Amino acid sequence: MSDLAARLRALPAFPDVMPELDLATLPMDPTELFLTWLEEAIASGTRQPHAMTFQTLLPGGAPVGRTLILKDLDETGFQISTRNTSAKAHQLAEDPRAAMTFFWRESGRQVQVTGVVTALGEDVSQRDWLARPTSDGTPNPDWQVYAVQPERIEFMQARADRNHVYVSYRREDGSWHHAQGR
């Protein structure tokens, strides 16, 4: 083991006290659990609780990720925004599959969302653009809001003993089904 490996292994991973994931009270719709966890992260003062790693696919299928923020969550899905000329917009045009990974270190929680991305209407995109803190009130035709319509959502609640608790939801025939584990 190298010195770096030993130092990395010694770093603290999770807080001493973390919430439990009660498997007996899981909601049927995983977005309910996601919103509960997000609201708890917001209430606890977590810095940028809406930040996530957003992964798209390069030509050839290699994944590429970057940090984005969640703009909204509604019946259209988990929303993000970008310029139509961005690399991620081009990647989504080639292959609309994407993944989001939220990680709230302070509670030892992670949520992974995978699904197909669709571009939302111009009205949604311009409302988002005009609501930005730096907006001068001029519309931006290059701005696009996308929504990830989830097909799979996995929740992980860390445990100090590293026997983390996982719950995976999968959409099948328009309904959500969940199971413990990955």
Rank of each mutant, 00 (worst) to 15 (best):
A13W: 03
A13N: 11
F14R: 11
F14D: 07
P15M: 04
P15L: 12
D16C: 04
D16T: 14
D16M: 10
V17W: 00
M18P: 06
M18E: 05
M18F: 10
M18L: 15
P19M: 03
P19T: 06
P19D: 03
P19Q: 08
P19R: 03
E20Y: 09
L21K: 08
D22F: 09
D22Y: 06
D22T: 10
D22I: 13
D22C: 06
L23R: 03
A24Y: 06
A24C: 02
A24R: 12
T25P: 02
T25C: 07
T25D: 11
T25K: 13
L26N: 01
L26H: 03
L26M: 12
L26S: 05
P27F: 01
M28G: 13
M28N: 09
M28P: 02
M28T: 13
D29G: 07
D29P: 05
D29R: 09
D29A: 11
P30G: 03
P30A: 10
P30S: 08
P30K: 03
T31D: 13
E32G: 04
L33R: 13
L33A: 08
L33V: 08
L33N: 02
F34C: 01
F34Q: 04
L35H: 07
T36D: 14
T36Y: 09
T36F: 12
T36Q: 15
T36G: 03
T36K: 15
T36E: 14
W37N: 03
W37E: 09
W37V: 06
L38S: 00
L38A: 02
L38M: 13
L38H: 14
L38I: 02
E39L: 08
E39V: 01
E39F: 03
E40K: 12
E40P: 04
E40Y: 02
E40G: 07
A41K: 07
A41R: 02
A41L: 08
I42D: 09
I42V: 14
I42N: 08
I42K: 14
A43Q: 11
A43K: 10
A43S: 13
A43P: 00
A43N: 08
S44C: 07
S44V: 04
S44I: 01
G45N: 04
G45M: 08
G45Y: 05
R47I: 08
R47P: 01
R47D: 01
Q48C: 09
Q48A: 10
Q48H: 09
Q48P: 00
